[in-house]
Design a protein around this nucleic acid. Structure first.
Lengths: 338, 338
DNA sequence: CTGAAAGCGCTTACAG
DNA sequence: CTGAAAGCGCTTACAG
């Protein structure tokens, strides 16, 4: 019913092993036979049986990806990341097996034990990541997205959120802002100990301490009321610029500022940390530090492809793009006259 | 290095075939041996080799899912759907192989030819779906999410968007609204011929024709300016209620209405078509027709699990939840005094 | 209730 | 440059 390597061999008048070698390129084949074999493959529509191949070669050509499919994550970022992983994996002739975090460490053991994949990529890593021991003991390469507190022995990639936090402060300080506010991720993100939130905050604080800048910080729940309360607090402190590290509130933010009679960037500057397309989609195109999700996904695949990924933390430098939402503050003095 | 069925058999003092039968339950095993085998499996941490199992049994325990990983789809809906698929698949002891639409029909042929999966689920089906012929010729069960114009011979599941369109009109008409507007999906969605957009519109129009209701229709691009233009047009026609079938503009919608001095629902009613949690997240919780993505994903898996899924269109009835954003219109006459 | 053995479709030393 | 054959780790008739 389905075409096998024996069918192709028969059609091409060679042995099955020759067909196999044509496919793998692991030994030189005479021009003529190679062509006949390739022709037969094409004509018969032959695809090697994945199970048989995996069994014989101990390689599955499958990459396992553990993704957070919950609602409380940055959904577009996750999607772009997954897209980057699948695209790059296909470029390496690999497929992607999608796992949920629900299975926890056992899921990783199962995938490794069943020889379902050649490598595993784990998203949404927490600072105190509970899957670290399993990951280290796995007989296959693992790549983490995010940086746990103790990454020893594991390959990690991520945006350099520490540098991103500092870059945000730097950009605003150089424009002349002296009082800024960080509208941070949801309290739930901090509570979970998600690694990027803490790193961004650290970079932000360090840069604030280094410059003559005053800064307020507020986590912001992903709701309209949450945003409103957050702005009430923060704007009450007379800031002239907002750093928004929370994509969920990005949509309503500009309309809400407008409702308050604040023009961007004339009355207040806004600097976002989010995917580039999201920044461009706003009423006023936002200056932003890009979260290069698809690129990170591709990079993770590249690392996962090597038999032994370098057990070190690889951080992508942040790129800040100045768009229409940031400008020098209206007054030299940061505090509005009351 | 890795535990095989022979290791388990040796440890339990039985033959490999007995271990296999304990695992599959395909023949009765004496209480005692079963317990010894299960114990050995547990102690050794045995997981059957997926490739070997697939080769011997012609079943992979893998489901292929073709998902749209582009930016121009409803990202949260896709994520929830994928989550529903993975969760339900795991409940059936299956894993999910994630494919992009980029590969097109060839990707489906490849997966079937390589025996990578036992069934395939295809999301984001268009009215004139180009993958239909391949799907029909595939030697494995296929389930479509969405309803192409010619679904003959294929299993389809989706929300009944036609009924949803009608339900929206019905809800507003019963509240007393006589002039309503449909803020539709992005022009790109219509251009692609995505099946749900047309069906919703059909149901909407049919219900409008049946009732003493006047209706405006506008596709709405996923940008702030697009929304603004759309509202300019539609509000200019004196409508008292909005049906919003476009999650991308849901975030900025309420703030923008507020900016225009329109209170919801006092001055204007808003009825959304979107996932329930998204409706609840707004400044005013929105009355809505739920898009039950996760449930649809689960249903698709159930169908895909059967050797021959019923080749018919399965439509889930829409559920309209009345929240705070819909109310009777202020005046009995639909047109505001000018 | 259980075991010995064939066979699934490949890959890869081993031989020539 | 090519082929014959062993073997990967399971499942499942076939036997008893």
């Amino acid at each position: 019913m389905v075409v096998t390597i024996a069918d192709v061999a028969r059609a091409a008048g060679v042995s099955p092993s020759t067909v196999s070698y044509v496919l793998s390129g692991k030994r030189s084949i005479s021009e003529g036979t190679r062509r006949r074999v390739e022709r037969s493959i094409r004509e018969l529509g032959y695809h090697p049986n994945a199970g048989a191949r995996a069994l014989a070669s101990s390689r599955t050509n499958v990459l396992a990806l553990v993704a957070p499919l919950r609602a409380d994550v940055n959904v577009p970022v996750v999607m772009q990341f997954v897209g980057g992983v699948v695209t790059r994996a296909r470029a390496h002739d690999h497929d992607v097996l999608l796992l949920t975090e629900d299975e926890g460490p056992d899921g990783l053991r199962r995938v490794a034990g069943s020889a379902l994949a050649d490598a595993v990529i784990v998203m949404d890593v927490e600072a105190a990541e509970p899957r670290l021991p399993v990951l280290r003991s796995l007989p296959l390469p693992a790549v983490l997205i995010g940086v746990p507190d103790e990454p020893h022995g594991l390959a990690c990639v991520d945006l350099d959120f520490t540098a991103a936090g500092a870059a945000c402060v730097g950009h605003l300080a150089e424009l002349g802002h002296r009082a800024i506010a960080l509208v941070g991720p949801s309290p739930a993100v901090y509570a979970r100990g998600t690694s990027y939130a803490g790193r961004f905050l650290r970079g932000f604080r360090a840069a604030v301490a280094q410059r003559a800048v005053r800064a307020a910080e507020r986590p912001c729940p992903p709701s309209y009321d949450g945003l409103r309360a957050c702005l009430d607090d923060v704007l009450g402190q007379g800031v002239t610029a907002l750093v928004v590290h929370n994509e969920a509130v990005l949509g309503p933010l500009l309309p809400e500022l407008a409702r308050r009679g604040l023009r961007v960037p004339e009355d207040i500057s806004v600097l976002a940390v989010c995917p580039a397309d999201m920044a461009e989609f706003q009423a006023v195109p936002l200056s932003s530090v890009d979260i290069p999700s698809a690129e990170l996904g591709g990079l993770a695949v590249e690392l996962a492809m090597s038999a032994a990924p370098p057990a070190r933390v690889r951080l992508l430098p942040p790129r800040l793009t100045s768009r229409a939402s940031t400008a020098p503050p209206r007054t030299a003095t940061p505090l509005p006259s009351s």
